[in-house]
Design a protein around this nucleic acid. Structure first.
Lengths: 335, 335
DNA sequence: ATGAAAGCGCTAACAT
DNA sequence: ATGTTAGCGCTTTCAT
């Protein structure tokens, strides 16, 4: 019950100084005589005093806590971004409140509002589905928000990511050059910004360059998951498709295994390129040819950007999207 | 700068009531005349008032935030536990501060102390390496701590898990029955409670039952990771080992691929059983025979237990470990 | 270099 | 049913 009974006041009395001095010592303020500092430090140690971060947050209006929204913590793509975020956050002494936006009955908006209510100093949002209402919430937020590993069409919401359009184009062009006539595109919802304005245009650009007509039925929408990829294998084969660019690695792994289990040989009869380059891409057999991207860095850079925004308050320069370089690695799922 | 300028006081004034009444409305206290409630609610909506959780936390000494320690967010085992934790936490209106204990320079103890400083209402600890000093920290904590997916040898620290000793024994016995003379055990550090007091004894029990002499050089220690498993493949083959029980799925997947890449056929020439039954076990080819366990439930039950402990204060009944049922699923990595 | 005192925004007795 | 008031534990002017 007597949670945290030793307060700054206890220390002050015990050390014969005012709370202000104790506060200064705790916060590393230089205006304290060395002897006083040592005396206070000794008492702090003796009493095992630990500052109450909640009280500190209320008084200073800074919680040294950020909010991180993640659609699915068990998806390697987001987990690897989160690792980068957390490492840098730790480095800057921030904690992160992590919330699954896919969780039971909690819309992303509620989740974000709750984060703001907890007075987080900033938010990193992961996920592709950023509806207008959510963007509005971000815009009127009093703390900075950074989107990691995706993007919105609101120019005022900074993001850290790769060039998804160009990456998609490269992958699809590669598949086309191998003589595949029917190249599928497997993505999440077509209505998300990343798919509507980046991946689908990239896909179309590749087709155009190869003088292949766009066929809408070759675009597959499915939530990112192994199971969904697996299920689509038969459908694709039935349609005469011989290659696919899959944005999510779990889906790509599912597709691969679905094909293999249907006795379709990869890469001989079907080529796959995946988009995220998580560990999964090298665990499957055959391994997955992939667009490569520095996932950890995307998270880490997003967090770095957030720290800047949290201190600068209003530097519009910082709102530019940060585009990291992507690459391409041929593995066993392409010829 | 004017972060959260509308406070409970603003609402009170605007609605011509006292802050206490507003507080009652916000907290769903029944002692408010319906008309008053409506009036206040209207003002809240109009002003878009959102209670400041930090102030609330300071005044009430409850933050509705729990701390969750995870060794590696990109390891499916922990990620799936975390998913269960988060779902139940959300259900009970708790947020979770997630901290990677493997992160740069942050020992588990510091991480936990920081969590307490943030006044979390409880902690769920994941990870196998729980040294004495950390256990001491848990014991003197003023808020409850639950270990999920592992255990300590301190009877006063509740845990939610499966019977690792029995599970290991079953797996190893299975391998022995298939005529394997040299069965390896691949685990993390032998000094962790889970390995020292559960898995190794389970391994030994199986050997004893089959009248096979324990050979210490068949026990391999390596941090859970795909790479470590992969590297060990050659060593194991060189030693004439023909089967292994691997506690972690990433390591098992690595071992499997390492063997395959060395032209050792699984399961014909080498059998593998893995211990965690994450999604990885069905993604590899061949798929991995596995001890099955309800990972999501382990997390979910741990969180449920924590909520009980957080409200009951001191019910010693609740400190009993919760042992969930495990199973065994034969897949393609055993004959 | 140090202290006094006023909050931060809320909850929780205690009155009425 | 509603209001008054005293904190919660700290930071931060403002004095000295």
């Amino acid at each position: 019950m007597e949670k945290q009974s030793v307060t700054i006041y206890t220390v002050a009395r015990e050390a014969n100084v005012s709370m202000a001095t104790v506060s200064r010592v705790v916060n590393g303020n230089q205006n304290v005589k060395p002897e006083t500092r040592d005396k206070v430090l000794a008492v702090i140690k003796k009493l095992n005093y630990r500052p109450n971060a909640v009280a500190r947050g209320l008084a200073s209006k800074k919680t040294t806590t950020i909010g991180v929204v993640i659609p699915d913590i068990t998806n390697d793509y987001f987990a690897e971004l989160a690792l980068g975020i957390d490492d840098i956050a730790t480095m800057y002494k921030y904690n992160m409140i992590l919330t699954n936006s896919d969780a039971d009955g909690s819309s992303a908006i509620k989740v974000v509002q709750n984060l703001f209510a907890k007075q987080v100093d900033g938010v990193i949002f992961m996920g592709h589905d950023i509806e207008d209402q959510l963007q509005a919430e971000f815009s009127k937020a009093t703390v900075p928000v950074v989107v990691a590993g995706s993007l919105t069409n609101d120019k005022n919401i900074p993001s850290v990511r790769i060039d998804y359009e160009q990456a998609t184009k490269e992958a699809v062009s590669f598949l086309l050059k191998h003589g595949n006539k029917k190249v599928a595109l497997l993505i999440g919802s077509r209505e998300t910004t990343i798919n509507k304005f980046n991946r689908i245009p990239g896909y179309k650009a590749a087709l155009k360059q190869a003088h292949v007509k766009f066929n809408d039925s070759l675009v597959f929408e499915a939530d990112d998951s192994y199971e969904n990829g697996y299920k689509l294998a038969k459908q694709m084969v039935k349609k005469g498709i011989t290659a696919a660019f899959v944005s999510d690695d779990s889906s790509a792994a599912g597709l691969l295994n679905g094909l293999t289990d249907s006795n379709v040989k990869v890469p001989e009869d079907f080529e796959i390129i995946t988009g995220n380059d998580t560990k999964l891409a090298t665990i499957t057999r055959p391994t997955l040819t992939s667009i490569t991207q520095p996932l950890y860095d995307v998270g880490a850079v997003a967090m770095r950007l957030l720290t800047k925004l949290m201190s600068n308050d209003n530097d519009d320069e910082e709102k530019q999207p940060v585009i990291l370089q992507h690459g391409f690695e041929e593995r066993q799922s392409t010829r």
